[in-house]
């Protein structure tokens, strides 16, 4: 293991990590927004939109991100829709993540008993006030484990971005191995950088999960 070599590769890896993080987190934030909207549409059975959302969720939960990206990046341009690689990456992640987040949030909603909603309505709260002040806070704590798991999953999925020529960590590692054959050094750095991206999230996630579990509201 040649540490000099590893040090020389560091700047490349750091650049790559920045790209991964940028596209990754944009995708994740978008997926939370999409997922939340979908969960509301599904749980409250909004006509038409609810059904479309259902189809979207099944489609994106049962197909791999890599294929989705290929379709977006190589397939859509044939119809005249040219999307640049970074946008593709974020979009693909957002669409995939949205489907997973939708399920996580929906199970949160379903954990709140209807009679809680009724009790709020009987006091005169409007439906919107009921959702904001009574349903959401309770739904949130139930969704946390799945939510954390999804974020970790989505960050791991960013490892396929190299397939659409984005110069992320995998791309950098593969490239460097191909050029200089320092396989062990490259792979070690690869592992280290993914640990840097993911370990903090995993640890933070466990802490939040535990806090929320002990705050438990049940009788």
């Amino acid at each position: 293991m040649n540490f000099e070599v590893m040090r020389s590769y560091l700047p490349l890896y750091i650049e790559a990590m920045k790209l991964t993080l940028k596209i990754g987190w944009i995708g994740i934030v978008l997926s939370v927004i999409i997922g939340f909207a979908c969960a509301v549409a599904r749980h409250y059975r909004i006509p038409v939109i609810g059904r479309i959302v259902g189809v979207y969720i099944e489609l994106f939960r049962n197909t791999p991100l890599l294929v989705q990206l290929f379709f977006l990046y190589f397939g859509l341009p044939k119809l005249g829709l040219d999307i640049n690689a970074e946008v593709c990456g974020a979009l693909g992640l957002a669409l995939l993540g949205g489907a997973y987040m939708a399920e996580a949030f929906r199970s949160g909603f379903e954990a709140v008993e209807p009679i809680q909603t009724e009790s709020a309505l009987s006091l005169g709260l409007s439906p919107v006030q009921t959702v904001v002040h009574v349903v959401l806070p309770q739904a949130f704590s139930v969704s946390v484990p799945a939510f954390v798991a999804n974020i970790i999953f989505l960050l791991k999925e960013t490892s396929v971005f190299s397939a659409i020529s984005l110069m992320d960590l995998m791309f950098t590692a593969k490239d460097l191995i191909g050029l200089y054959y320092k396989t062990i050094e490259c792979l070690t750095l690869l592992v280290i950088f993914y640990l840097i991206i993911l370990l903090p999230v995993s640890i933070l996630g466990s802490i939040v999960e535990r806090k929320v579990r002990y705050a438990g509201f049940g009788d």
């Binding site: 009790s119 009987s122 806070p137």
Partner: peptide, 20 residues
């Protein structure tokens, strides 16, 4: 309906206090 529900109060068998 919200105005009317303010005039008609209801207490449930399962209390239904907001746990949070």
């Amino acid at each position: 309906i919200t105005a009317i529900r303010q005039k008609i109060g209801m207490v449930f068998q399962s209390y239904e206090l907001f746990p949070h």
